[in-house]
Design a protein around this nucleic acid. Structure first.
Length: 478
RNA sequence: CGAGGUGUGGCUCAGUUUGGUAGAGCACUACGUUCGGGACGUAGGGGCCGCAGGUUCAAAUCCUGUCACCUCGACCA
């Protein structure tokens, strides 16, 4: 079968309607179902299993770097949320409020957490008194609520799952190092677990997190050329600890406000996986987070010995990967399409013909390549193939990003590229908010980040022509 | 929050103009034949036509109200 021939008819093609393609994949791959409250989604077992893999791997990274998990309450009293001015202004428009307990109106309304900085600060205040109590390296896995107007599965839902790390440090340097460390962990995770290349960089003041002194981001480029902010790490300075009266006594017996960082990734990462690797036949999952890494499909299973052989292979493969054996009475063709839609990296076909030759057919989801493998070398071959799938997926995504990244030197070029070529645009910027606003207005692009790896494209701002020494990534974003 | 659109078995829709026994395809159930790229036959099950009023002998269809969802804009992980 031809490599690019569309085999799954239930999914709208990307070219026809990318947004529809995306939601088709979410539904048909059984990642989610819509819930009865707008903007809320049911994450189905197959989708949730991806999240569990993400959690498991990331949580390992967090633990390795000394973080502890904690759980904070769901509710934030209004007075607590009010304490940090920028923060409350940033989040107030999109918080959900609880006003009643049973039939009784509450004295003070409670906000359903949109993020937990305020709760952590309130807690830190109680438990931190001496330099000996520092640092505090906390993380929590939970869901948060932000009352979004326009919603999309995984990309923007009113309730979403995430992790939020909140750390408290004696010095600014330590807090900055934490911010940087976590950004690097996210980038490493994106590349090594999700096969997704990202640009590491700092957000401009305009795009910064409410209340932060600096916000860092990993930005990924989706299939349709739109950017997706896929993880953030913030440096707070001592702004929050001042607002919340968090004070510790240092070695010289002086009161000091500690310094803080926070960092988070969300179920949006699943959206990133879909739009980075997916194709017209559905999901393509990176092996590291795929709930099923190999699916075993018996062919003509009514024939003698087929089911037995398939089961034997299944039992052997359980030791080397996450494997599923599908013995349902659907036809093989149906199963091929089904597991392709669900993005399973490898498909192993075993039928009478193979059994006779002591081999099987293995098909790769990412390339559609089919190879014949001797049954004697399965334990070696499957892990090799999974690893090759990962590497090839990463390289393919990287190549696409590079092919969709353009440089602009002046406003006309910027407009021209933004109008005709989806993707990242690299351009110099003078640092003025006015230029940032103007680029949004005339070219429809926002600043994605100031990449840590700078390249000097010219001496002048793409917008105003004044002196500029920062190169930024610009683009249309989710 | 502004503009446009849509509500009919689980899903995609026809039927509404011109009121008269609720339909199709897919999915589902049972049995049989199939099985290397979404198989086929036979027989079945499943609906207050978004909701509430109204007009009428009679409403999915006409009128009024209401709710929900979708698309596009403004705000956002």
């Amino acid at each position: 079968m031809a490599k690019n021939e569309k085999m799954v008819k239930e999914i709208t093609s990307m070219e026809e309607d990318f947004a529809k393609w995306y939601t088709d994949v979410c539904i048909k791959a059984e990642l989610i179902d819509y819930a009865s409250v707008k903007g809320c989604m049911i994450i189905r077992p197959y989708g949730y299993a991806i999240w569990e893999n993400i959690q498991r791997i990331l949580d390992g990274f967090f633990k390795e770097t000394g973080h502890e998990n904690i759980y904070m309450p769901l509710f934030i009293p209004e007075s607590l949320l009010q304490k940090e001015k920028d923060h409350v202004e940033g989040f107030a428009p999109e918080v959900a409020w609880v006003t009643h307990g049973g039939e009784e109106k509450l004295e003070e309304r409670l906000c359903v957490r949109p993020t937990s900085e305020t709760l952590f600060c309130d807690h830190f205040k109680n438990i931190v008194h001496s330099y000996r109590d520092l640092p505090k390296l906390y993380n929590q896995w939970c869901s948060v609520v932000r009352w979004e107007k326009t919603t999309r599965p995984f990309l923007r839902s009113r309730e979403f799952l995430w992790q939020e790390g909140h750390t408290l440090h004696a010095t600014a340097e330590e807090a900055k190092a934490e911010t940087e460390q976590m950004l690097n962990i996210y980038a490493k995770f994106a590349e090594e677990a999700l096969a997704m290349p990202v640009v590491k960089g700092e957000k401009t003041a305009k795009e910064r997190f409410a209340g932060a002194e600096a916000t860092y981001t990993i930005e990924a480029l989706m299939h349709d050329g739109k950017a997706l902010q896929s993880g953030t790490s913030h440096y707070f300075g001592d702004g929050f600890s001042r607002a919340f009266d968090v004070v510790y006594t240092d070695k010289e017996n002086k009161p000091v406000h500690p310094f803080q960082a926070s960092w988070g990734v969300t179920t949006r990462l699943i959206g990133a996986i879909i739009m980075t690797h997916g194709d017209d036949n559905g999901l393509v999952l990176p092996p590291a987070v795929a709930p099923i890494q190999t699916v075993v499909i018996p062919i003509a299973s009514h024939k003698e010995g087929v089911t037995e052989k398939a089961t034997e292979i299944y039992d052997r493969l359980k030791k080397v990967c996450r494997v599923k054996l599908d013995t349902t009475d659907q036809t093989p063709g149906w199963k091929f399409a089904e597991y392709e839609m669900k993005g399973v990296p490898l498909r192993l076909e075993i039928g009478p013909r193979d059994i006779e030759n002591n081999c099987c057919v293995i098909a790769r989801r990412d390339t559609y390549e089919k190879i014949t493998v001797s049954l004697d070398e399965l334990e070696e071959k499957i892990p090799q193939l999974l690893s090759a799938v990962h590497t090839d997926m990463y390289n393919k995504a990287l190549e696409r990003r590079e092919n969709m990244t353009y440089d602009a030197h002046n406003l006309d070029e910027m407009k021209e590229i933004a109008d005709t070529k989806p993707g990242f645009i690299r351009a110099m910027w003078c640092g003025d908010r006015e230029c940032e606003d103007k680029l949004k207005e005339v070219a429809g692009v926002t600043s994605r980040c100031i990449p840590l790896e700078q390249e000097h494209l010219s001496d002048t701002c793409v917008c105003c022509g004044k002196k500029a020494d920062k190169m930024l990534y610009w683009g249309k974003a989710y």
